[in-house]
Design a protein around this nucleic acid. Structure first.
Length: 500
RNA sequence: GCCCCAUUCGUCUAGAGGCCUAGGACGUAGCCCUCUCAAGGCUAAAACAGGGGUUCGAUUCCCCUAUGGGGCACCA
């Protein structure tokens, strides 16, 4: 989609250090990154910290961690540097001031001395008259004398942009085509605040220009600002980057956009994760999260939903992004994570399982882990699930199973005891403790006794593992070992005997 | 209040005027496989917001309405 005459592809992700890394931000970063990698361009990380009030310490680390975890590497940024630095806006203040002054000198902007109180009053009046809220351009029309007087008094001021009063502005959006705005609906927005810091609009335009950003891909909520930025570029006489507004993630309950939430929450009884760190902590694989995100608002084609990040890079096309916002389809993440877990090699999966087990306070025996790993691989959607499925393999203690749980429906204690004793006898006589030998022996018992596999194996499962759900029975007892398995079965027989 | 964007199964999506009796996926239900649970296979229910145009023909183009989202800060 990028024509070859265009400038080299340089895109940026420009978060504000105002807290945790939100999944919506991650998605925006991902689409920028995919675009950059697809076009062999540069992906730049820039920190927009021009609002000193909202700065939250530690945010920068969360941005690095979140992007890094997903493999969204940046070519230029605060930590890695680059030829267009600094990459932190608070270190570029002189630049913004210089260009704000340039706009004033060229009659494209003006100083405004209005107080917060007056602004608020004007706003109220306009609202009362059912007009659009906003500034009444009072200071735009100050005479030279009035201006000089205010300067002499040393009144604090902001710099405001002189928005064209009439006409219209048409912005070409790479996803939705031309979008037209009436200039009369646009405001004389503030470019430089009274504290000397730029607003987003100024800093963004100046930085994108001097960092030679070729394409801007940002969230949908910025679409209304596009004509403002267009006019700023026009005032400066700079070429505006190509621009696209990405659809946003909506809350699963259908109310508003997801980014209104600052952390994971429960909806319909399931946890809806929204922070990058939560995904990692919950055991989701980075490739699964990337895959999950790339299926929202964009589709691979060929009816494929499962694909690698590399494949996504090869195919990514910003023009094919769906313009409509989407409800966050979090229920697909578990499925995808399961798919990716099954795609992992044993060596890749092992550390995840080890960590999950250790986090649950279990001591991990390497031999046991290696044996249970392939059994668990098709049965878990997150590494943590191995604890519930097979954590008993890593526990020393084994609590005797209560009578009620042991006996299959329609069986009585006498029968159960008799069967268990036969099982113990036959299994202890076994030469070799492989799962197929055990199974062959038990199949023979089934044959002779006419019992149902479900009943017999079910009882043995509970007796040997203490659980009604486990990995396949004989693979499991093979891991548990002959002595311990028989001990547990005898114990079960005793439990039944007492009741009987 | 004004402005902008969007609207295909519950959800994510394919669909760029005839290929659509609208395809895929998740989820749901059923069946098969089966020692439990998964995985896997098969099947089912499930959508073009409504109304006008344009056209020989609209899911696809235009308009209106409705609904949803976003914006209108010395926040980004």
């Amino acid at each position: 989609m990028t024509d070859s005459t265009a400038r080299p592809v340089r895109v940026r992700f420009a978060p504000s250090p105002t807290g945790p890394m939100h999944i919506g931000g991650v998605r925006t970063a991902l689409f920028n990154w995919l675009f950059a990698r697809h076009n062999n361009g540069k992906f730049i990380l820039r920190i927009e910290d021009t609002d000193r009030k909202r700065f939250v310490p530690g945010s920068l680390e969360k941005i690095y961690d979140g992007l890094g975890w997903l493999g969204l590497n940046w070519d230029e940024g605060p930590d890695v540097g680059g030829p267009y630095g600094p990459y932190v806006q608070s270190e570029r203040l002189d630049l913004y001031k210089k260009w704000a002054d340039w706009l004033i000198d060229n009659d494209k902007a003006y100083r405004c001395y209005c107080t917060a109180e007056r602004l608020e009053r004007v706003n109220e009046e306009r609202k009362a008259r059912k007009e659009a809220p906003g500034y009444d351009r009072h200071c735009r029309y100050l005479t030279e004398a009035e201006r000089a007087e205010r300067e002499a008094q040393g009144l604090p001021s902001v710099v405001r942009f002189k928005m064209p009063l009439n006409g219209s502005t048409t912005v070409y959006d790479m996803i939705r085509g031309n979008v037209q705005f009436e200039n009369s609906t646009l405001q004389d927005l503030v470019l430089l605040k009274s504290d000397g810091f730029p607003t987003y609009h100024l800093a963004n335009v100046v930085d994108d220009h001097f960092m030679e950003i070729s394409h801007i891909m940002r969230a949908n909520e910025w679409l209304s600002s596009a004509p403002i930025h267009f006019q700023l570029y026009a005032a400066f006489g700079w070429e505006m980057p190509q621009i696209a507004h990405l659809p946003v993630l909506l809350n699963p309950n259908g109310k508003g956009k997801l980014s209104k939430r600052s952390a994971g929450f429960f909806e319909d009884g399931r946890k809806v994760l929204v922070l990058a760190e939560e995904f990692k902590a919950a055991g989701y694989l980075p490739q699964a999260v990337v895959n999950f995100l790339t299926n929202i608002g964009w589709s691979f084609g060929e009816d494929r939903e499962v694909f690698s990040t590399q494949e996504a890079i090869e195919r990514f096309d910003i023009a094919r992004v769906n313009p409509a916002d989407s409800v966050y389809p979090i229920e697909k993440l578990d499925w995808l994570n399961g798919v990716w877990i099954r795609n992992l090699s044993e060596d890749e999966l092992r550390p995840y399982l080890r960590e999950a087990l250790e986090s649950a306070g279990l001591t991990v025996d390497d031999a046991i882990l290696n044996q249970v790993l392939p059994l668990a691989q098709t049965r878990i959607k997150t590494p943590q699930e191995i604890v519930e499925l097979a954590g008993f393999l890593f526990r020393d203690s084994f609590a005797p199973v209560p009578f009620e749980q042991l006996i299959p429906k329609k069986w009585d204690a006498v029968q159960a005891r008799s069967i268990l004793e036969q099982v113990v006898e036959r299994l202890s006589a076994l030469d070799g403790w492989t799962h197929d030998k055990q199974e062959a022996e038990m199949r023979a018992l089934l044959e002779e006794s006419g019992l149902k596999p479900r009943d017999l194996f079910g009882m043995l499962r509970v007796a040997a593992t203490g659980q009604a759900i486990s990995p396949p029975l004989f693979e499991t007892t093979e891991i548990i070992g002959k002595d311990e398995t028989l001990r547990r079965l005898r114990q079960a027989a005793e439990t039944v005997a007492v009741q009987g």
